[in-house]
Each structure stands twice: as C-alpha cells, then as structure tokens.
C-alpha cells in the first residue's frame, strides 16, 4: 500500500532540458533528473558549467529552449503567469550576488517574501526578528545593505530565502563569503529546513562543504548533468543525524 509520501509528486522533474541564450551555443544539454520531496543535493561543477543557469530554470527565471520541466507536479510550460507567480512563492533563492534592495534595511529585505504573501505585520515582525537574531544580525536590523559587510549581506540574503519556509530552496554559493564557522551554521539552518520538509539544492565550489555533508550531487560538466542521485531516497534521516551530531558538538563546547 502506498503511503502519502510515496504518491506525492516529485518536487522537480527535468526531461531532456536544454538551454541556450539567444543564438549562442547550448549551455545546458539534454538534462534529465528528478528531485524528490525533502531531498538535499549539492550542485557541483567548474565555473561556467551552467550551475547558475540550471538554478535559473529551477526558480522559473528562464525557460528551456528544449525539453520539459515539471515543478511540484505541474508542467511549467503549461502554467499561466499567475500560477508561476504562485509557485515562485514556494521557492526560496539565495542569489550569488545576494540581490538585496539597497533602499530597504535588513529587516525589510528579509520581510519581502512575507509581505508579498500578504502576511500580517505583527507576524512578520516576530519571524523576521527571530531569524535575523539566528543569523547573528539582530543589531543590524535597521542597517542598509550598503552599510553591511559582504558576509552580513549574504546572511540577509539567506534569511530572505528561508523566511517563508519554502518547499524548495535553491542556494547559489551561499557560503562563499562567510568564514567556516558561519558556513557550517548556515548549512545547519538548511538542514533544519530540510528536516521540516524543504527540498534543498546548494550550488557550491566548496569541496570541504561537500565532503563534510554527505549529500548526493548534481555534477554539471560541459552542460551535462553527469551524476544523478538515485531516486526514492529520503534524506531526512541523514539531515536529522547531522543535526544531532551538531547539537552534541554544541553541548561539548
């Protein structure tokens, strides 16, 4: 007998997807893979391999030139613009260049997804303050991005991506500008989210990070995904184990 988890649709399905910019060469070639609910992947590959382009397809910022993408069980090319917008609200994105709005302070940048979703201001205040404290920026809530260091901006970008507890979290080099301790802390934030049911894809060059956290990889090379994780695996247990290990480490300290 199938459980609810067995019959739930895949979060993402790529079927023979290719991408080219204008009339240039194909950046991504005939890519097929599946991301299951509550899974955790690293996306690896050399610079220019197409990681950012693949992420852009995942958060519906680009359309494939060939092939079909299914998101949350629905074909993206069949969706109306309003449905796409609705689906985007279920995705959290950490951009490589952060994309913070310079006219908004740290609090308002993080609050943006909640405001777009029409959340109550009282709830927004509570959740955003908690999360900013968690990422160590409680004193910088009223600071504007231009007044903050690169690492602080990156943490705001991450907080904005996770504040609405997305179903799918896509992070492009989320630990690229922070020290190792903060990188680990942020990874545990992702693990915490994963434990709560969020599917996570972290694009990274950080070999140490990939080695420390034994998650499967989507390895991009010359426009092809050369390593596809086996389907049917839930990574929640793995995330839970890692979190438990981290909690013990914290207790020892």
């Amino acid at each position: 007998m199938n459980t609810k988890e067995d019959i739930s649709p895949n979060i993402v399905e790529f079927n023979g997807v290719s991408l080219r910019y204008n009339k240039g060469p194909e950046i991504l070639k005939d890519i097929s893979f599946v991301l299951e609910p509550r899974s955790f992947y690293f996306m690896t590959g050399e610079s220019g391999a197409g990681k950012t382009s693949l992420l852009s397809l995942l958060y519906l910022h680009l359309e494939p030139t060939r092939g079909r993408i299914r998101l949350f069980g629905q074909a993206v090319d069949m969706m109306s613009r309003a449905t796409k917008a609705q689906f985007r609200r279920q995705i959290g994105v950490v951009f490589q260049d952060y994309r913070l709005l310079n006219h908004l302070n740290a609090f308002d940048n993080v609050a943006l997804p909640l405001r777009l979703a029409g959340e109550k201001e009282a709830d927004i205040k509570k959740h955003v303050s908690e999360l900013l404290s968690w990422v160590g920026l409680e004193k910088q809530m009223k600071s504007y991005p231009e007044e903050l260091a690169g690492g602080e901006q990156q943490r705001i970008a991450i907080a904005r991506a996770v504040i609405h507890k997305p179903t799918l979290l896509l992070a492009d080099e989320p630990t690229g500008n922070v020290d190792d301790a903060m990188a680990k802390r942020l990874m545990y934030l992702f693990l915490e989210l994963n434990k709560l049911g969020t599917t996570i894809v972290v694009a990274t060059h950080n070999v140490g990070l990939v080695k420390n956290f034994h998650f499967p990889q989507l390895h991009l090379s010359e426009g092809h995904v050369t390593q596809v994780p086996a389907s049917g695996t839930s990574y929640t247990d793995m995330a839970a184990k890692l979190l438990k290990r981290e909690e013990k480490n914290v207790e020892k300290i």
């Binding site: 958060y59 519906l60 910022h61 613009r81 309003a82 917008a85 609705q86 689906f87 985007r88 609200r89 995705i91 994105v93 994309r99 709005l101 943006l112 997804p113 777009l116 979703a117």
Partner: peptide, 15 residues
C-alpha cells in the same frame, strides 16, 4: 532590478 527581484519572489503582474 527591483521588479526582477519581486517577480522572482512571486509577486503577480497585477500586484
């Protein structure tokens, strides 16, 4: 850049 971001965060065209 603002429009692009809020669009990616799920703001509808009519909004």
């Amino acid at each position: 850049h603002i429009l692009d971001l809020v669009h990616m965060l799920g703001a509808k065209d009519l909004y």
